[in-house]
Write a protein that binds this DNA or RNA. Sequence first.
DNA 1: AGATTAGTATGACCGCCAGTCACAAGACAT
DNA 2: ATGTCTTGTGACTGGCGGTCATACTAATCT
Lengths: 238, 238
Amino acid sequence: MTASTNDLRSKQDVFKQRPAILESSILDRPGRAAPRTEAKRARIVDAAMQHFAEHGYHAARIEDLSAQLGVAKGSIFQYFGSKGGLFLEAYKKAVRSFPTYLDSPPQIREKGFFEILRYWLLKTERLVREDWIPYRVALLGNYGVDLSLKREINRFLQTEDPYGSAAFVRLGIARGEVRSDVDSTLTVSILDWTMERFQDALLTEELDPGLFPHPADAQKNKARIDQFLLVLHGAIGV
Amino acid sequence: MTASTNDLRSKQDVFKQRPAILESSILDRPGRAAPRTEAKRARIVDAAMQHFAEHGYHAARIEDLSAQLGVAKGSIFQYFGSKGGLFLEAYKKAVRSFPTYLDSPPQIREKGFFEILRYWLLKTERLVREDWIPYRVALLGNYGVDLSLKREINRFLQTEDPYGSAAFVRLGIARGEVRSDVDSTLTVSILDWTMERFQDALLTEELDPGLFPHPADAQKNKARIDQFLLVLHGAIGV
DNA sequence: AGATTAGTATGACCGCCAGTCACAAGACAT
DNA sequence: ATGTCTTGTGACTGGCGGTCATACTAATCT
């Protein structure tokens, strides 16, 4: 549940239409298709996630991936159009695998908005250790690709809201815990921005030592989380 | 003065030493060198800034750049080691060209911390139109390269603090406008994170339409800035 | 000045890899 | 079987980052 990039998502309908370089050539609507084909597609995406996670975006070689999969390189391009297209699918899958804010257990949920945040901040440290691959891919997508891909990624985050920030903020407002005197899209954006960066700062050392400054030890992390929540409460709390 | 990435900058001394892939091979200390050489280096960096700004990182071709400059391709690699090394220099130059928070005029400065922020938020819209090149390069560096380069960039932002966020926050605390009950590195980080993203959201449409959601018209931007400052005040104000 | 050395410039060349495409192999229908 | 359509394949290409042997220039020495 690393926060997303749903920045000020008003008017999201009026995008300039851009050449869709990243579209796949085969199977544009993956919903309805031969199940065999669909399965192969999924296999490729899974392997790609791992490959990108291990090597990074640029160092990842499509041919290695195809060899490892026992699939011809051409097939991968047939399915995903380009390396960027493949990465985008891997990124989507990675991000969709994360829990939503509202996926927190009921006994946490009833404690309210900021306790839910605390729950996830603490939990993510463990989650990332159990299954670092999607986190690394998400990190790559957030910082380590190029702008055209980043554009697609933002579009995805914006339309899909995979962390459920909007609904989460709505809950907070309904409970009277989150301020309602500012545009709620701004609230959501602030939440997304700060959560994303804060978690990056906490976690990235393991995913990518040196990218962000050292996080303190686990002990100190707890204190940091407290302070962070204090600040965030000041920002968007009531 | 787009905010930087000085995330939680404690313990910044204990970086794991990584192979310095991005170092230039010639003239590692550009301070003291033949003035001719130095001038050439500067010429290349200038042209590179423009080139990267126009084409993006990946689409930029070193050979095109060298042709445009009337300089051999080999020379560029001699000076900067790699495409990434060249970009890093261009990025540094771009970011260094931005004003610091405390560069605001005295009559603004005496109005206090949050008025200084407002001043820059309003001003940047104009600045970016007058001279979009460094902003685009900064944007590329923030989102459009790969992780190894991003790592170097973060290291730079962290050690150099080119926007002077730390000093600015110190001023705010001294004036009693900024909270002192949390670790000031957290305050600085929050400031950096939110300012960066907020400005991206306001500005990016012109630099890179489609990357971030449409900003509203200028009228609405002013209202957004008000709300943003309100929220930011809640976060780090006293 | 001429000779020697160190620093700088050059562009043909190389290796690598994303992306293509002509062809092969299945799948399915008739 | 025969034909048609879909899916799979991997040798091949184009283009670019990066190298390096060589040429040139400037500085230093005799």
